[in-house]
């Protein structure tokens, strides 16, 4: 995907950012979830423009597939019985918006000003090479992460389990 043109990048960026902003703004949680799915899909496209096809696939599988469904289930399981909350936004939301804008600006400036050592051509390797990296040099962190997942799942089950009536 060498020479990916800048105008196209703007379109992809819009697919990521606009649904994200909408997600935070919607009052209905289901709408928010759908906006989130769109945004995640946009991130997958960003990965493709970065030569990271495997990442894009994983993004679609894990975020768009698994996590989104999980969140939708959670939303449905917790339908507000005592009516909607009156305030969707927190009291400090008015202060948070400018703070977030400034954060974006400052982060952008700080990141943009860095002097980076550019590679002449895209560096993200092919899938085979990536897997070799993942299962040789980074085998230990990989296994550790699997352990973390296992513990998290056990913990989640314990937390969400209905407590026995005494």
């Amino acid at each position: 995907m060498n020479g990916f043109s800048t105008p196209l990048f703007y379109i992809v960026a819009a697919i990521v950012i606009i649904p994200a902003v909408l997600m935070v703004s919607f009052r209905n949680l289901i709408y928010s979830a759908v906006a989130m799915i769109v945004s995640f899909t946009g991130v997958a496209i960003v990965f493709i423009t970065l030569n990271a096809e495997l990442l894009a696939a994983a993004q679609l599988l894990i975020y768009v597939g698994a996590i989104s469904i999980l969140i939708l289930f959670a939303i449905m399981l917790t339908k507000q019985r005592s009516g909607e909350i009156q305030l969707f936004f927190h009291r400090q939301a008015w202060a948070a918006l400018p703070a977030a804008v400034i954060l974006a600006a400052v982060l952008g400036v700080v990141l943009g000003r860095g002097r980076y050592n550019y590679a002449p051509r895209p560096q993200n390797p092919a899938t085979a090479q990536l897997s070799r990296l993942l299962f040789n040099q980074y085998a230990l962190p990989f296994e550790l992460v699997s352990l973390v997942l296992l513990v998290a799942i056990a913990g989640a089950i314990l937390l969400a389990k209905r407590e026995k009536r005494r």
């Binding site: 990916f4 950012i17 994200a20 997600m23 960003v46 969707f88 939301a93 977030a100 982060l107």
Partner: peptide, 29 residues
């Protein structure tokens, strides 16, 4: 090739939107 800074700017913006949401919304989900 789109310059690196473009991607970083996108990341910064998305990060800020997320941060805003974390601080501003009341619903835990």
């Amino acid at each position: 090739m789109t310059p690196l800074q473009y991607y970083l700017a996108l990341a910064a913006a998305l990060f800020a939107v997320g941060a805003w949401g974390v601080v501003a919304r009341r619903n835990i989900i």
